[in-house]
Design a protein around this nucleic acid. Structure first.
Lengths: 245, 245
DNA sequence: CTCGTCTCTGATACGTTGTACACAAGGCGT
DNA sequence: ACGCCTTGTGTACAACGTATCAGAGACGAG
């Protein structure tokens, strides 16, 4: 479609992945830009001002280069986001290999939560294809489960279940936190009494009596850590029960 | 800022939520547009061509109106997405009230999964503030848990845990499915042997021995329904165990 | 019937975004 | 020293969200 008369030298060669490309031994002369510099700058912007502030132009400004410069390293914004996600997962410290499977999975889950809460935009970005540092998570989990004598399908299912819970729970947590932060309410006292005005209106419709009652009675509504750990322990209990310790 | 010299009749009155506004008894004459028509059209586009195809202009074209017409009903694209999410959740059939709490939560989870898989874009859109039809989910779950004698915090935690698992699991599922669909591979035979080229390269780095082995041995890798139900049953087992049946 | 008014829609326009394309600059092997 | 290949620049365009204003059509009052 392009390069229809010139020379198509390496045109149409099979598409290599971002990671494969970056792994090749840096064939380039004079680089002022590197994947690391790009990722660092982009993650910095996202952490400071939210993922919407991450713009190819803004990134270029931050790096002191022209808007199109980063395109030598990532093929588009999607790959930039992949790079950012991988960069964040790189800071995840994996649990030691000599722990009980349950303890290993538990601390892994807690650490993932911490990382995701530190970079809330990651939860809404990560796609289908896992990045290298994301793959280290199931690798570590499977290693922890290795001695328990599970078949491959069950072991994978356990990993998926815990991962699903962690991501889902942190996602809810982030949404909830952001919902409070969007309004002016800084303290939760203010938030609880006024709640969201729309929420208040919804409650006043009388269509959610149980919900209304329960949030009225709840006393640990703000203890997100407790909620997360309670759910996580339920999940781990269930795994242990269903799999014979 | 606007209307600085005329009459600011209802200007600056406190911001009312989308749902409150739509509930007021339709004060308007001659409507060719309605929230329902807008939501139907937008959801249709998103289902057929993905969420990125949902554009204010595209939506207007679909509705046969000018690009700005829908802004009379939603204040911006964010509210359009809220409207779409609520429209989708409206088709969720809630379980009857006379079931066992466990069965109620189980079928609720399975039905949410079905809805989310039918409209995969919903999973990546839903925010912090729940829409009315989304609120019906915890309402129904709390109703099912009402007789079990849980304190408010625990009941809420149970709801959150199940919701978190469902959302997280479906999210993974969608990502996985989309990852297969992005390539040309239509069949999973083709997908398994070739896998993603990038995945294959990552595996060949030798950094993920366990993962590589387990996906090689797994035989139910494509049975996503089994995976989901297995995880779900683990979660429910854990809840039952930790809460004394 | 007429008219003022209120609500809904159309037209136009602006700033921002992602990115295609062609060109310039500078280090390395020979 | 020379050319080549990689890297960064400049310019440009289509598409997006949305602000603003003007017009159109139905209702209530007279």
């Amino acid at each position: 479609m392009l390069a229809q008369e010139g020379k198509p030298p390496s045109e149409d060669e099979e598409r290599v992945s971002l990671w494969e490309r970056l792994d090749r031994p840096a064939p380039a002369p004079r680089v002022t830009l590197t994947p690391e510099r790009i990722a660092t700058a982009a993650v910095g912007i996202a952490d400071a001002e939210g993922i919407d502030a991450v713009t190819m132009r803004r990134l270029a400004t931050e790096l002191g280069v022209a808007p199109m410069a980063a395109y030598r390293y990532v093929s588009g914004k999607d790959e930039l986001l992949e790079l950012m996600v991988d960069f964040v997962y790189a800071e995840l410290k994996l649990p030691d290999g000599d722990a009980d499977w349950r303890e290993a999975l538990r601390t892994l889950a807690l650490r993932i939560r911490e990382v995701l809460l530190t970079h809330p935009w990651v939860a809404r970005v990560s796609w289908g294809a896992p990045t290298p540092h994301q793959l280290a998570v199931p690798e570590s989990a499977l290693a922890a489960l290795d001695g328990v004598g599970l078949d491959a399908d069950t072991a994978m299912a356990v990993c998926t279940t815990v991962t699903a819970y962690v991501h889902g729970a942190v996602d809810l947590e982030i949404g909830q936190t952001r919902m409070l932060r969007v309004r002016g309410w800084s303290s939760r006292e203010e938030a609880r009494s006024g709640l969201a005005s729309q929420m208040a209106w919804l409650m006043n419709t009388g269509r959610y009596p149980k919900y209304n009652r329960y949030i009225g009675e709840a006393t640990r509504k703000d203890d997100l850590q407790w909620q997360f750990e309670t759910g996580l322990d339920c999940v781990l209990d269930g795994i242990a029960a269903r799999l014979g310790v």
